[in-house]
């Protein structure tokens, strides 16, 4: 068994608008001199610390938790799960 850090990023699915990201882009970033930025998306990140056999199982376990407990609403959001060695 090993300890892993698992990062769960929850964001709106592609095609679904993200008003917060748009406001930060248009009303803050683009009003400065940072014209090279073309998009900002907001997301929420949860950091799990988990003890599992390997990275694959750790990822699957966290995915299962996210699905079971409705940690994100699949109707609007998607999750990206990244696993790192602790």
């Amino acid at each position: 068994m090993a300890i892993f850090n698992v990062h769960v990023t929850i964001e709106n699915k592609p095609g679904i608008s993200d008003p917060e990201g748009e406001t930060i882009l248009n009303d803050l970033v683009l009003k400065g001199t940072h014209s090279s930025i073309s998009k900002i998306k907001t997301a929420k990140m949860l950091k799990f610390t988990i003890k599992e056999k390997d990275k694959k199982i750790a990822k699957a376990k966290v995915q299962e938790i996210c699905d079971d407990l409705r940690i994100y609403n699949p109707m609007v959001s998607k999750v990206t799960i990244d696993v790192f060695d602790a």
Binding site: N12, I16, S17, D18, P19, M75, V76
Partner: peptide, 14 residues
Amino acid sequence: SENRSAVQIPDPFI
């Protein structure tokens, strides 16, 4: 059937 595309995103600021 769960009709996914029909979900609307609120933007109270606009």
